[in-house]
Amino acid sequence: MTRRNKIALAIMFLVGVGIFAFSLRKIKLHALWNDLLHINLWWFAVAVLCMLLYLGLEGLIVKVFISSRISGFTFRDAVRVPAIEQLFNGITPFSTGGQPAQLIALMQAGVDGGRASSVLLMKFVVYQAMIVVNFIIALLIGFNYIVEKMHALALLVLFGFLIHLGVIIGLLLVMYWPRFTKKLVSLCLIPVGWFMKQERLDGIKRQLDEKLDNFYHESLRISHEWKMMAKIFLITFFQLLAYYLIPYFIMLALGYTHVNIVMVTCLHILIVIVISLFPIPGGSGGAEYSFEALFGSFITSSSKLVLAMLLWRILTYYLGMLSGLIALVIPPTKVQDSTDDK
């Protein structure tokens, strides 16, 4: 990690401590401590397992993609990728640092940069597609509840859906309409040319065209491997399901055994969409507020509501960043990536 990234990590931990302290301002500490002592450790262990399963299944997706072209790529190296992604997503606005960090992790393992970029983009396409599908289902089930509880949050949910849908459309254009995408990129670069020399602008355009071509050819190859893509979609479904179920198991751990698993899961899906709109790394502030606002009707005890939010945030945000810190100190095993067959 660079010095700048270490500073960002320290700042986000401090921000988290500040938000936790603010959430506890009206809570009696002895009540919170009592709730913590009486937590059902078995159900909480299941919640922890769900987060670990989420990371492990994403590692499996990376391995399936890479192993289809390169032999010797281990699961240990594959699982490093989502762990590092979690860390850099957590310390950058709008989670923009995750993709470059994954690319570096794969290149450290010996995967060619062009191939690694294509694999990560294909993984991202599948992930975004499944998010959109899950969101539509969750919207049909839980949107009326959000409108009833918080009108403004409902608008954010719809806006978040449009952004994710736009991302999917953009990626599909690259995959199946590369000429149009190149023209669109050229149009977008016109304002950029107002602030830099033509020679440098031409170099940027050549690099972008090369990346688009690489992604197009690799994605075309991968998309025709139906069995592998079906496996990727299936693994991604269970990966996201494990993540979305975390609040439900936290509620069971706190003694709320009669909550509706479908409604709780759908509300968590909608919260994840809202979090992606906040520019602060990790959606800090917005994530905690959304959780308390939506799950307040299920968790009637104020101390248990804050405890549920803290446990949820620790598992879904800080545990992921901790796994990334561990992954950074684990050296990858180099593979030999022959690019002749690209």
Results as ranks from 00 to 15, higher is better:
Leu328Met: 15
Gly285Met: 03
Ile280Lys: 02
Phe124His: 07
Asn5Ala: 14
Gly59Cys: 13
Tyr216Cys: 07
Gly282Asp: 02
Asp209Glu: 05
Thr316Pro: 10
Leu315Asn: 03
Phe73Tyr: 15
Thr96Cys: 08
Val125Thr: 09
Thr257Tyr: 01
Phe161Tyr: 09
Arg115Pro: 02
Met263Asp: 00
His164Met: 11
Ala45Asp: 04
Leu294Tyr: 00
Ile61Phe: 03
Ser338His: 07
Val147Trp: 00
Gly97Tyr: 00
His38Ser: 05
Ile11Asp: 06
Leu315Phe: 05
Thr333Lys: 15
Ile70Leu: 10
Val79Lys: 01
Arg313Gly: 07
Leu29Cys: 05
Gln102Met: 12
Ile235Glu: 06
Ser302Asp: 04
Leu305Asn: 04
Asn260Tyr: 00
Pro178Trp: 01
Ile275Gly: 04
Phe249Glu: 06
Trp312Lys: 12
Trp177Asp: 09
Arg80Met: 06
Phe298His: 08
Asp35Asn: 13
Cys50Asn: 07
Leu241Met: 13
Lys28Arg: 09
Ala8Met: 14
Asn134Trp: 03
Leu52Gly: 10
Leu267Phe: 01
Arg206Phe: 02
Phe180Thr: 14
Trp177Thr: 12
Ala21Val: 14
Leu277Asp: 03
Leu277Thr: 08
Val329Lys: 15
Phe295Gly: 11
Ser302Cys: 01
Ala230His: 01
Trp312Ala: 13
Asp112Val: 13
Val274Lys: 12
Leu52Asn: 02
Leu254Ser: 06
Leu55Ile: 13
